[in-house]
């Protein structure tokens, strides 16, 4: 196994360095993408066209549970990376599976949330507010779902190949992605839910 030098394993090759830098730039593009969706939401957040409004829809308790699940999953993901750096494959896998379960929990609550909105009469077609809100939320949700699929694929690879420079890099990248989704959620929580309930 690679010696414990000052460079972490995921940065140990030139190709790894480039992949990680490339992913950071991709996250930059993702920031632009979500900023555009937020801007769209801010433009249309008052256009109800007779449909339900924020205060009709939002249930703070459910949103807080989602927030708690996702924030915790970000923490467990951090622990997984920590274990990966320590080359403890089993501990790493344990925390990754924990992350996965928390992520699935988040998705479960989010799907419930969508059901609730449909029940309350808010769909994509109801109003500009509905379109903008559900699209912003849905885009984040799809990102989380993709992230879960990605993590599963990586768990299989780590089980099969152990912690190598390549799997470590892939894992590090998915952790960046996961933390990013967490940050986006914090913005959604603050500027969509809290603002909407005020």
């Amino acid at each position: 196994m690679a010696s414990q030098t000052s460079t972490p394993l995921e940065y140990s090759t030139k190709q790894n360095e480039m992949n990680i830098l490339g992913f950071w730039i991709f996250l930059g593009a993702e920031i632009v993408l979500f900023s555009t969706l937020f801007a769209t939401y801010f433009v249309l957040e008052q256009s109800y066209a007779g449909g339900p409004t924020q205060s009709d829809l939002f249930i703070l308790k459910d949103v807080l549970i989602e927030t708690f699940l996702l924030l915790t999953s970000s923490f467990t993901m951090g622990l997984a990376i920590h274990q990966m750096r320590g080359n403890n494959k089993n501990a790493m896998l344990f925390w990754t599976v924990a992350t996965l379960l928390l992520g699935l929990g988040f998705l479960y609550y989010e799907i419930n949330e969508f059901n609730h909105y449909i029940h309350e009469g808010l769909t994509l077609q109801t109003s500009a507010f509905g379109s903008a809100f559900l699209t912003l939320l849905g885009t984040h949700g799809v990102h989380v779902a993709l992230g879960i699929g990605w993590v599963i694929a990586l768990i299989i690879q780590v089980v099969r190949r152990g912690i190598t420079a390549v799997t470590a890099r892939k894992f590090f990248i998915v952790s960046l992605y996961w933390h990013f989704l967490d940050v986006v959620w914090i913005f959604i929580f603050t500027f969509v839910y809290l603002k909407g309930l005020m």
Binding site: A49, Q125, T126, A128, G130, S131
Partner: peptide, 9 residues
């Protein structure tokens, strides 16, 4: 959806 339409706000 109603992002850019005349109807629906």
């Amino acid at each position: 959806a109603h992002f850019f339409t005349v109807a629906g706000g």
